[in-house]
């Protein structure tokens, strides 16, 4: 994967749009979901769809801090495309009888905290951090979650929809890794000092406090569903390989931090990391619902209906 021409990419993105109405949501195949699969699949889809939605909000923040007009427009599209993924996944859930009319899946407590954090701080998060973190999450999604889903679900419509979603994701990754390499340009020490400054920023520490447990609980959900841990390792390796394929990419200090963290995250034998983080997971699950703030209004934009 060589660095891509971001100007051409913008046009490519515009030329490859799709919509929920492109699919027949009543077509046969929904019955292929087994009764045994159903409850876990429901949790999985809800998590997946919320992750897309949270990713969408991340792109919205990137669009705001993007250094060029072109990237600003690309991220504006990606923001909407992640929303499209969430909408399409909700439409699948509706098709499989996992949602009532007008119902949205309930986010886990962890996700609620992440949403709250995004609402407060996403727009102030340094561009370089978000622009490196999002590709990592996308690799994890693309490489592990989606692949796993397609291996276990036989509904042909699901496969058709995810073919489109994965096409979008490959463009997201193409842009993501190109931007990560762009960040490797310039004097190393300045970037390092900036990074160290950010690492002690309380807003970012708060972010880590909600984000680390989210990853851990997602990982546990996946493993509970029967996914091998191997898959997560491999997707993290992929992130490391592509992100670090050039010296420029490796010189992006955020890449170093994030891939290091990713490696620890998937390695469950690292107790120094996992014991406290798992405690945070348990803790956040104990927060009474009524204490969580009302979700921000961007959450209300989600819909499973192809036509408005």
């Amino acid at each position: 994967m060589a660095s891509i021409d971001l100007e051409k990419m913008r046009q490519k993105i515009k030329d490859t749009q799709w919509a929920l109405v492109d699919f027949d949501w009543e077509s046969p195949g929904a019955e292929k979901i087994t009764a045994k699969q159903w409850p876990k699949l429901k949790t999985f889809m809800a998590d997946l769809m919320w992750i897309e939605h949270v990713g969408a909000r991340g792109f919205a923040a990137l669009a705001k801090s993007a250094p060029t007009e072109n990237l600003r427009e690309i991220y504006t599209y990606f923001h909407a495309e992640e929303q499209r993924h969430a909408n399409a996944e909700m439409a699948l859930m509706k098709r499989w009888g996992m949602l009532e009319e007008n119902e949205s899946p309930v986010p886990s407590a962890n996700l609620r905290l992440v949403i709250e954090w995004l609402e407060r701080y996403a727009d102030d998060t340094p561009f370089n951090l978000l622009a490196t973190l999002i590709p990592m999450l996308e690799v994890a999604l693309d490489g592990a979650l989606c692949k796993y889903l397609l291996e276990t679900v036989d509904d042909p419509l699901c496969h058709k929809v995810f073919a489109k979603i994965n096409d979008d994701e490959s463009r997201h990754l193409g842009v993501g890794f190109t931007v990560m390499e762009m960040q490797g340009k310039g004097p190393h020490y300045i970037k390092l000092i900036q990074l160290l400054g950010h690492l002690v920023d309380p807003r970012l520490i708060a972010g880590a406090m909600v984000y680390f447990p989210l990853l851990n609980s997602m990982r546990d959900n996946l493993i509970a569903m029967g996914m091998e841990e191997e898959k997560l390792y491999r997707s993290m390796e992929k992130f490391k390989k592509i992100g670090g394929r050039t010296s420029q990419g490796r010189r992006n200090p955020w890449f170093q931090v994030i891939h290091y963290h990713g490696t620890i995250m998937v390695n469950r034998s690292n107790y120094f990391y996992h014991v406290p983080v798992d405690m945070l997971v348990a803790l956040s699950n104990k927060i009474p619902r009524r204490l969580l703030p009302a979700p921000p209004s961007w959450v209300a934009e989600l819909t499973h209906r192809p036509i408005a």
Partner: peptide, 21 residues
């Protein structure tokens, strides 16, 4: 505020995947 992807016979399709009629 979603970008507009294209027009259709009955309305406007935005990049968030929804056709607004």
């Amino acid at each position: 505020t979603w970008p507009i992807a294209r027009m259709s016979e009955k309305g406007i399709r935005c990049v968030e995947g929804i056709e607004h009629q």
